[in-house]
Amino acid sequence: MRAWAKALPWAFVALLILTWQMAISHQPAAILPTPWAVVLGIQELAVKGLLLKYVVASLFRVTWGYVLAAVLAIPFGLFLGWHRRGQVALNPLLQILRPISALAWIPLAILWFGVGDLASIFLIFLASFLPITVTAMNAVGSISSNHLNVGRNFGLSETQLVLKVLFPAVMPQLVVSLRIALGIAWLVVVAAEMIAATSGLGFLIVDARNAGNRYDLVVAGMVLIGLIGLLLDIMMRKLEHLSFLRWAHREE
């Protein structure tokens, strides 16, 4: 990439900040913060120790809910894909549950777990579990029958077939679904914390508004959410380009 192509995204960020600054300065009764006020807001959070506390709280919930979902959904989805009868039996249920946003579960989550970490973790778990399960299930279905037949032809046992053909074949799709699920988990944690928690970046946004319309802190929370979300996505994309998955990008 040429230098200007690399600089272009930053130019747009700068343009946005500039437009933002100009728009605020043309507004007589300034409720909304200027970009600089947001920077000061972040600094204020850091000084008070809230920045670290809230970021850690949100990441803690996402980690637990998401890792738990991945650990359970991958084997579950692969099992359903591998055993046609299991898939036939459970697929309708999965398809009914899937369009129900995890956020719709907030009242039940609070009822069951109270306001706190567990409710948020539960919601993140729900939000990540179904997409990973369904992708894993479908990934097994899309394995080439040629490849399975080759495995059987060479005398592989069922276990060997799973280890040597099924796992490598579904891995690229799994990694993509893990990245997407992490994105969803990050969206959900913010929403969950707005209602079902008393810490975290979602809570920060609601709290800042309620405690005297501190829109500088509201926007500070939004900026932090965006930046951390970006970092998580970059991390997962790195995973997709590990050498043993590279074949998937070159096929067809």
């Binding site: 060479f154 490598p168 891995m171």
Partner: peptide, 29 residues
Amino acid sequence: PDPRRIFVFQERGVFPWLTVEGNIGFGLF
């Protein structure tokens, strides 16, 4: 199917996640 009798598909039977070596050694576990 039986490893004493091997079915050769059109090239679609090659495992894309294995190298040439890995593919050729696939049945030699």
